[in-house]
């Protein structure tokens, strides 16, 4: 989309490869659909084999997207929870059983987190918003979604700012303080963050209003989403898995 760049000579040369090769990533609409299908597979209480097949597929998608390290980490984590669960059956003991149950719960949510990681890492928010517009979600909802994503990094910055300020004023965010002076610690974190956030939210609202956020026209997008063959393959596989899960599930 930006191939005309070459005509500009005054600016530093861009890394052409970065611009021209589209990163390997699924269409955002596929991603949303697959995320739903994964939940169906894991909460329909069907065969363990189906779950494992699903995990393998998610891992393969991550590897296709160039995230093999993340894939391996999640696979290892998943295998770990399964092993510990089996172990807890062998040694019935209060604590071990409790951790065993926790492992089962974790096993059910790991796949969703794993796939969400793939979405967040590789998909531009603009593309995601564009996809949500294409599937005709209400505008208010989409804007809320976009703002939420934009606020996470800001929240992180503010959080560390306040934690450091607290330390300097002699309020340590420690276990001891959390137990002895819980109100002080919570107040000290929350109030400054909320105040700052409300200022930022106000300023953001003003800046968006002057740029037509409340226009009545139908919102369009800079980005265009295109299905590629991989989208078809992925949707097909996960649909089959989900159908099998529903049929065999109880």
């Amino acid at each position: 989309m930006l191939q005309q760049e070459t005509t500009i000579k005054t600016e530093p040369a861009m890394k052409k490869e970065d611009q021209l090769i589209e990163p390997r990533v699924l269409d955002p609409r596929t991603q949303i659909l697959v995320l739903i299908l994964i939940s169906v597979i894991f909460f329909s209480l069907s065969d363990l084999l189906l779950e494992v097949a699903c995990m393998v597929m998610i891992g393969l998608i991550l590897i296709w997207q160039g995230m093999w390290k993340t894939a391996l980490k999640y696979w290892a984590f998943y295998a770990g929870t399964m092993l510990f669960f089996l172990f807890s059956l062998e040694y019935p003991n209060m604590l071990i059983s409790m951790i065993g149950i926790l492992c089962v719960a974790l096993r059910k949510v790991i796949p969703s987190f794993m796939f969400a990681t793939a979405i967040i890492e590789k998909t531009k928010v603009g593309k995601l918003v564009s996809a949500l517009q294409e599937i005709r979600l209400p505008k208010g909802l989409i804007i809320a979604f976009a703002v939420t994503i934009r606020f996470f990094p800001t929240l992180k910055e503010e959080y560390w700012l306040v934690i450091n300020a607290m330390r300097m004023r002699g309020i340590r965010f420690s276990l001891k303080n959390l137990i002895l002076r819980p109100m002080l610690v919570m107040e000290s974190i929350l109030i400054p963050i909320m105040l700052r956030m409300s200022v930022i939210a106000d300023e953001l609202a003003v800046s968006s209003v002057t740029r037509g956020i409340d226009s009545n026209r139908k919102r369009t997008s800079y980005y265009k989403n295109r299905f590629i063959w991989m989208d078809g393959v992925v949707i097909l596989i996960f649909s089959v898995l989900a159908i099998l899960a529903i049929i065999t599930g109880n």
Partner: peptide, 23 residues
């Protein structure tokens, strides 16, 4: 605090998107 998006291109396009210009 004046940015709505997390990347620059979307931010530059933001107003135009709101006003419904074609892609």
């Amino acid at each position: 605090s004046q940015f709505f998006n997390v990347d620059t291109t979307s931010e530059i396009a933001f107003g135009c998107e709101n006003l419904g210009f074609t892609r």
